[in-house]
Simulated assay, not measured.
Amino acid sequence: MRAVNALNVQQPQLSLSEVLADLAVDALIDEADLSPKPGLVDRRGSGAHTDLHLGLMHASALSLWPTFKAMADAALHFGEIAQPLRETLGRLGREGEVDMLGITQGVNTHRGAIWAMGLVTAAAALDWREATPAAVTLRAARIALIGDRAAPHCDASHGAQVCRLYGVRGAREEAQLGFPAVMQLGLPQLLGSRAAGAGEQNARLDSLLAIMTTLSDTCVLYRAGLAGLSSMQSGARAVLQAGGCASLDGRRRLRELDSDMLRLRASPGGAADLLAVTLFLDRLAPALQAQIGSD
C-alpha cells in the first residue's frame, strides 16, 4: 500500500459554485487584511469604526460562503438572466444578511458586499468560459437592472438615505452600470501598478485609491457629508499623483488621507467593497481555468 503523506494527497475537486464562493470570500478577507487603508479596518486596527475589528470582518466574510455558493448554484439552475434568477438572488442576499448579522451580533460588516459580490459570483457562474472582467460585469449589470418584486418598498439603509438626500449614485446604480469604478479605475490601476513594479500590496492600495478618486461613497457621505466625500476623493488623487503607495511621497500623502478620514470618522466602505470585487475579477479566469478547465 502506498504511504499517504502531505506530498501525495490530492485535494478534492471542487464544484464551480464552491470555487466561486471560495474566490468571493478570499477577496473579502484580502480586502480586510490590506494595510494601511485610510479610515478602514485593517491589520493596524479599527480605523474610523468603533464597532468593527479585523477578526469580526474575517468571521463575517466566512459566514457568507454558503450565500455565495447558493447564488452561484441559482445561476447554474436557472441558466439565464431573467426575473426568476434576480428574485432568487435577492432572497438569498437577504437571508445571507440575516446570517451575517447573527455572526456579528447586529453589526453591519458586509451588507454592500453581499450585493456587489453576489452579483459577480452569479454572473460568473452563468458562463464560466466567458470569465473576463468585461463579460462578467456586463452579465452582472443585466441582472441588476431587473427589478426584485419581493424587495422592501422603502429601503431604510444608510446608503439609500444618502442617495435620496444628496442625489448621488449608490451601490445599485453602480452595479446596473457594470461597475464602472472597478472596470475604469480599480482594475486598470491594479494592473498598471503591478506592471510598474509597485509590489502586490501597494498595487492593491493604489487600486483602492483609484476607486476612491471618483466614487460617491455613501459610507463616507453618511458619516461626513459632502465635505468628507471631497476630502476622500482629493486625498486619494493626491496619493496617486505623488507616485502611488510605492513611493515615499505617496506614502506621506496616504498618511495624511488616513488622518483626515479618522478625524472625520469617515470610512470608505463602498470603495472597499468595490476593491474586493476588483480582486475577485482579477483572479477569476485563472482560478476557473486551473480548477474547472482542467477537467
Rank of each mutant, 00 (worst) to 15 (best):
G79F: 05
A272Y: 04
L284T: 10
I292A: 10
M71C: 09
R252D: 15
L34W: 02
E200R: 01
L205K: 01
E173W: 12
S35W: 08
L101Y: 04
D155P: 03
A27F: 03
A21I: 02
L28V: 07
A24G: 02
R111H: 10
E130I: 06
M183P: 02
L16D: 11
H153M: 15
L281G: 00
L76K: 01
P66V: 09
G244Y: 05
S230P: 07
V182H: 05
G39D: 02
D26H: 07
L275Y: 05
L40E: 03
S207D: 04
H77E: 15
R255S: 12
A21T: 06
R111L: 15
L64I: 00
K69V: 12
R252C: 13
T109Q: 04
A3Q: 14
L119V: 08
A272K: 08
S157W: 08
S231A: 15
L62I: 10
D22Q: 08
M232V: 14
Q11F: 11
D73C: 11
L274F: 06
E80W: 07
N5V: 11
N5T: 13
G147I: 12
R263F: 14
D42S: 01
A156T: 14
G244D: 11
T67I: 05
V41W: 00
A238C: 12
G118D: 10
A70C: 04
D282E: 15
A271P: 00
I81M: 00
A72K: 06
R149T: 15
E80N: 06
P84N: 05
G79I: 02
P133W: 04
L138N: 09
A224D: 07
V19K: 03
A3L: 15
T67Q: 00
A271L: 02
T109M: 08
S234K: 13
R91H: 05
V136E: 08
V239M: 11
G235P: 08
